[in-house]
Amino acid sequence: MIDNLLFLAAPITVSIILAGILSYLGNHILTRGIIFVDIAVAQIAALGTMIGLLLGFAEESANVKMISYIFTIAVISIFALTKFKKQVISQEAIIGIIYCLALGTAMLLAERIPGGSNFISKTITGNLLWVTWKSVLSCLIMFILIGIIHVIFRRHFIKISDSKNGLPYSLWKTRAYELLFYITFSMVIVKAVPIGGVFFVFTLLIAPAAAATLFTDSWKKRLIWSWIIGITGAIAGMYLSFTMNISNAPAIVTLLGLIVFLFAFIKLATKRIVSHNLSKEKGS
């Protein structure tokens, strides 16, 4: 048992760290309604890697990583700049289009790289179980730095996320904050996806924030609850995967996802009972 715990210590630690930063970012993503942004970012990063390989650099080399980062930041900047006063095409639709074009280009390029199609599906799985302490540490440092930026600018980020129609600041000031937000966001995603896989990251972003949003509106409460749900879900999923002998990232994803549906139905049921009782009282 002790051996197993030691073996699982690094994956559990990294899950907790990821749950910490992703549950926070998820509240922004959910409030903005740009749900699939992380899948798009992961796809853009994969395309960046392929471009690096096509330029003749070796796989896993620092150059390829650099190119992937720069490419991702460049594309996500376009996305930040498509924020308008009157949004004709919604941001989620722009994400869809960017995702679609990135994937289409990746499929064209895949023909020119040996084993190229692997890079398209590579983002799906991740390697949660084999994460090293070294990468746990580098995750922690990077996320703390990004976390500090977000703490400093928290008011502005929340203000922009909350404004559904129109902009809280002048157009270019809003876009500057957007740029900062999306660059830090995509750095987290590019770092997290190779570790947990794209669905793991997606679920840790959306599911805890969604479960929290079901019950409260305030940012503070949502944040605290999504941390609680995210971290408990990650640990419980890890435990389940260990006892039931299924792979860990899918276990966490399924658990957290089902929790959201369960909570949603509970919420609907309780409301119905309450309103039912109310109408009964009125009737009598």
Binding site: I35, K122, F202, P250, V253, G257, F261
Partner: peptide
């Protein structure tokens, strides 16, 4: 339910994919 429907769709997507992984018991999953 105050969460946008797109989030529900996204979660359904993630759960559908990963439960297929679990059901077919393929560790790699891709």
């Amino acid at each position: 339910i105050r969460i946008p429907l797109e989030a529900v769709i996204g979660i359904a997507y993630a759960v559908a994919t990963t439960s297929a992984v679990i059901i077919l018991d393929k560790g790699a999953g891709s």
